[in-house]
Design a protein around this nucleic acid. Structure first.
Lengths: 206, 206
DNA sequence: GTCTATAGACTGATAGAC
DNA sequence: GTCTATCAGTCTATAGAC
C-alpha cells in the first residue's frame, strides 16, 4: 500500500461504486452541491440553485435524487468514504507512530483545504440539516475514520510521547484542523501545507 | 479588577446598555433566539418559532426588531461584548503569562459550555447567515477580543514557552475550544471544566 | 405592545409531454 | 433524461384594530 497514489485510490473506489465518478452527471452535481452548501449553507441553497449549477431545470434534478436531503447525504457519505481510504493509505505509508500521526494530520489538512475541502466543510457545518436517520448512517462510516486516528494516538500514548489523553487530543485536533478552512489560504501567505503540519506537530510537542 | 465577579460584570454592562437585561422582554427573546438558532440553525428557525418561544404572535416580534436578521446580529454583538469583558477580567486576575493563558482558556471554555454557550455556538456556526455589512460590524468587536489572546500568547512566545507561532496557536485554539460544544458534557463523564482546561494546557506543553 | 389577517415572494416536489 | 407548468405549503414582513 505504501506507494499507492491518491488518484489510484479514487479510481478503485469508483470501480467499486463507493464514490461517483467526478465526470459523471451525478458526480458533477455532488461537486457543485458541496460548493453551494459550503458557500450558502444547505437551507439557503435551493433546488433551483443546484439545477442551475449543472445546467438543467429544477424539475430534472428529481430524476437523479428523490429529495434535496438525499443530495446532502450523498455529499457526506462519499466524502467520508474517499477520505477514509486516503487517510488509511497515508498512515500505512509510515512506520513510526509519530510518522503515522504526521501523515494523518497532513492528510486531513489536505482533505479540508484541498480538492475535497468544500465537501469536508459541509460535513462539519451542515450536520444538523441531515435527518436523524441519515445522521445515524453517516455516523457509522465516520467511526471507521475516527478509529484510524485513535489507534495511532493510543500507540503514541503508550510510548509516553503524548502529553494529554488520546481521546481529548483527537477531539481538539478535529476542531483545530477543521477550523483551518476559515483562515488558511495557501496562495496568500508563505505557509505551505507541510509548514502548517509542522506547526500542528510542534504545538503537540512532537 | 482582580476580584470582580461575573455577575458584577454583567450588571455594569447592563447599566451601560451594552447588553440587554436577561429579565427584560428583549433579553428574554435574545436568550430564546440563541437557543433556537443553535438547535435548528438560523434558516430553519422561523419568526413564528421565535415569537412562540416568548409567548407572543409572530407579527408582534417586529415591534421589537425590524428584521429577523437584526435578532441574529443582536445575539452575536451582545455575546461578544459580554465575553470580552469576562475574558479581560479573567486575564487581569492573573500575574504570570502562563496563568493568564490558563485563565483565558478556562474563560472561553466556560463561555462555550456554560450560560452563554448557545449564543457562542451561534457566533461560530451561523456566521454565514449574517449580511455582509453586519459581518463587518461584528468583526470589529471580535478584534478586541482576539487582541486579548494575542498579547498573552506573544508574551509567552518571547519567554520561549510557546512551541509554535502565536497566531497559529490562537487559531488552533479557536477551533479546538469551540468544537468542545459538540462533545463536552460535564454532567455525564467525570471531566470538569478545570480538568478540561488542564488537558488543553498539557497538550500545549504548558 | 400585542392582536388578527394577509400580502407577496419563494420553497420542495410532482405530472406529463417529448 | 430533460423539459414546462404548476401545486400546495411556507416564509418574512406589513397594516390596522384594540
Amino acid at each position: 500500500m505504501a506507494f499507492v497514489n491518491q488518484n489510484q485510490i479514487l479510481q478503485s473506489l469508483i470501480a467499486e461504486q463507493l464514490v461517483s465518478d467526478p465526470a459523471s452527471a451525478r458526480g458533477r452535481l455532488l461537486k457543485e452541491a458541496a460548493r453551494l452548501f459550503r458557500d450558502k449553507g444547505y437551507e439557503r441553497t435551493t433546488v433551483r440553485d443546484l439545477a442551475a449549477a449543472v445546467g438543467i431545470q429544477s424539475g430534472s434534478l428529481f430524476h437523479h435524487f428523490r429529495t434535496k436531503e438525499e443530495i446532502l447525504k450523498a455529499v457526506m457519505v462519499e466524502t467520508i468514504r474517499l477520505n477514509t481510504a486516503l487517510m488509511q493509505a497515508a498512515a500505512d505509508s509510515e512506520e513510526s507512530p509519530r510518522g503515522k500521526l504526521r501523515a494523518l494530520v497532513r492528510s486531513e489538512l489536505e482533505s479540508i483545504n484541498g480538492q475535497t475541502g468544500e465537501a469536508m466543510a459541509v460535513l462539519v457545518y451542515e450536520w444538523r440539516s441531515l435527518s436523524e436517520s441519515s445522521q445515524v448512517q453517516v455516523l457509522e462510516l465516520r467511526e471507521i475514520y475516527e478509529g484510524l486516528w485513535l489507534s495511532v494516538l493510543e500507540e503514541l500514548n503508550e510510548l509516553g510521547q503524548l502529553k494529554a489523553d488520546p481521546f481529548i487530543v483527537r477531539r481538539m485536533l478535529t476542531g483545530a484542523l477543521s477550523w483551518t478552512v476559515t483562515w488558511y489560504k495557501p496562495e496568500r501567505g508563505g505557509l505551505t501545507l507541510d509548514g502548517l503540519t509542522d506547526q500542528v506537530m510542534a504545538m503537540l510537542g512532537l
